[in-house]
């Protein structure tokens, strides 16, 4: 019989019954290994996925830039970028076509002679805010209604899902326009509008997983122990339905940034002279034909890189959070 330390057994000497000795307190390959937390375990697996790590770095960099600018916006100067992003300087825009990249203006200047690099940096703040806040709003609504819908079923499910269908069926931009008309223009209203519109995706996605998870025996076990519905939904069901949601969150943030761009393009998003990537793309598009490629290129590249970062990180996170996936 394998020798082993049965520390702790003295606590229950009186309760120890014949079975235990028969069993030889189980020893296995996990013995002696420090148990990892789920997140530590996730991180260990995530590290191996190079694409996900790249995505994560991108996200961190852009979040950092956005956050720095956010903090800087409260200082008297109002920005951290090398130039005032909104300072018009016609001298730098002969013929109203801006000036191409140079040592002093690496991304060039736009048609009003504003430094594109500074504008892209400051725009990062707004774009990241849109992504994160809009998705957060959508997620909160979606992850409350989705599990409730799936868990209770019946008429509750019908009502929530039919409402979600309406949100899906309605032309998206038209819907945002409608909400923006009601709320009025403004940065926060953009967040709210995009957020409200996004919930249906998360709710429906989550409801599907909830349907399969709620049939699991551990959910029944929780019920047998007298757990309340709320506890079952948020402790047992929801955490086990999150894997597809992670991907959706990542896609959603990318999507929200793009949607904001589209709104700005239509002139109902960010109000001038504030800059977001979408707003910049919208403003600069017409200058491409005139040969001023730098104005459009840099905000577009930033947008694409960010969306890519979120998607590859989201995919990696989905795979890494599954505790059943052994190494």
């Amino acid at each position: 019989m394998a020798e082993r330390d049965t520390s702790g057994s003295q606590v229950t000497q009186d309760l120890t019954i014949s079975t235990v000795s028969e069993l030889d307190l189980i020893e296995d390959k996990y013995s002696g290994r420090k148990p990892l937390g789920l997140w530590a375990d996730t991180w260990r697996r995530l590290k191996r996925n190079h694409l996900a790590v790249v995505g994560m770095c991108i996200i961190i960099v852009f979040l950092a830039v956005g956050m720095t600018e956010e903090i800087a916006s409260f200082t008297p100067k109002g920005y951290l970028a090398p130039y005032n992003p909104n300072a018009v300087n016609y001298a730098l825009s002969p013929k109203g076509l801006g000036s191409p990249p140079s040592w002093s203006h690496p991304f060039g200047t736009d048609y009003l002679g504003r430094d594109v690099f500074s504008r892209v940096l400051v725009a990062t703040r707004i774009s990241m805010l849109v992504g994160v806040i809009a998705v957060a709003i959508a997620l909160i609504i979606g992850l409350i209604l989705g599990p409730i819908s799936g868990y209770y079923g019946g008429w509750v499910d019908s009502v929530i899902m039919r409402t979600a269908d309406v949100f899906f069926a309605f032309p998206y931009i038209l819907f945002v326009l409608l909400i923006m008309t009601v709320l009025g223009p403004g940065l926060w209203n953009v967040f709210i509008a995009i957020g409200i519109l996004g919930w249906a995706t998360y709710a429906r996605l989550n409801r599907g997983s909830v349907l399969s998870v709620k049939a699991m025996e551990y959910v029944e076990a929780a019920r047998a122990q007298g757990a309340s519905d709320l506890r079952i939904i948020f402790r047992h069901v929801l955490p086990n339905t999150m894997a597809p949601v992670y991907v959706a969150i990542a896609m959603g943030i990318g999507g929200a940034i793009v949607t904001e761009a589209a709104l700005s393009f239509l002139g109902i998003g960010i109000q001038p002279p504030n800059a977001s990537w979408g707003k910049m793309i919208a403003d600069y598009l017409s200058y491409l034909a005139a040969g001023s490629w730098w104005m459009l290129t840099f905000p577009s590249v930033f947008l694409v890189i960010t969306v890519f970062g979120f998607i590859s990180f989201g995919n990696g996170l989905r795979d890494a959070t599954d505790p059943k996936l052994k190494e």
Partner: peptide, 8 residues
Amino acid sequence: PIKGQPPD
């Protein structure tokens, strides 16, 4: 019973 667990 046979004691222990199946092998790794």
